[in-house]
Design a protein around this nucleic acid. Sequence first.
DNA 1: AGGCATACGGATAAATTTATCCCTATGCCC
DNA 2: GGGCATAGGGATAAATTTATCCGTATGCCT
Lengths: 140, 140
Amino acid sequence: MYERKMPLTIDCGLHLTKEVLNGKWKPALLHAISLDIKRPSEILRLLPGATRRVLNVQLKELEEHGMVEKKVYPQLPPKVEYSLTETGWSLMPVIDAMNQWGDANRQFLETVISQDRRTPQVSKSVCQLYRNMKEERKTG
Amino acid sequence: MYERKMPLTIDCGLHLTKEVLNGKWKPALLHAISLDIKRPSEILRLLPGATRRVLNVQLKELEEHGMVEKKVYPQLPPKVEYSLTETGWSLMPVIDAMNQWGDANRQFLETVISQDRRTPQVSKSVCQLYRNMKEERKTG
DNA sequence: AGGCATACGGATAAATTTATCCCTATGCCC
DNA sequence: GGGCATAGGGATAAATTTATCCGTATGCCT
């Protein structure tokens, strides 16, 4: 397992939060779990861009950081369910704010990001699933 | 300059926001600028952990992403001032939420993070400056 | 038996981000 | 001249995060 070499910067709240959310899929994972999408295979289907491996790793980090809890059912085939902890729930306003800001500024952001000196291509189309699910859960 | 090789994930608002905030000091930079700490040298003094180089790079990215504007005064010695754009300002609620959540959960987070399998040491003590400045500006 | 689903994680390569080192330029002051 | 302050950025190494590949385990279905 990887071990840090440089000191971690933890001075202000900003850095603490950043550390917890540090990982390509962590905000999305928290969001998914908050929507009651709790089994690893469900989550994976929701995030086609991610591999099983990364999800495992980042879910474990979220668990170690006390944001999610993992329940393992002693069954075969195995069944695992994640849920948010108290602290995890308290992060949701931040996640939601990020999500909303990004969506609200999507057009602008896609433009500036694609003009970025980096950025060769972009993968979209996934999280529409989120919205569908949210609708289903609202109406259903 | 570095050029991406993997496609950028941009599907949901979460990823868009993450991309804009992607950089060790970006939230702190936006926060500082919002507090009217706008000259590079001032900002640098505020963030002792960061080097001049990184700040330049990340400020430029923030500028390219349309979050900040850079005003160069044709003087000698040179004078530069950054300010938030409209869009940049609209991000502040997110930044503030992150900052507040981190501060509110500081004790818990410091504990879990230091128990992290990684994490050899931690550097603190800096952003107290933020708070001092905030006070000064309030009372002064 | 072979293929599917569930779930986990080691090892290593590749990608990406940060850190370091070093050089440019100008004016002021001792 | 030498040192300070202002501000910017190339080149490269090091650190860190992601991506890939592969192997483990069990039960059900055809």
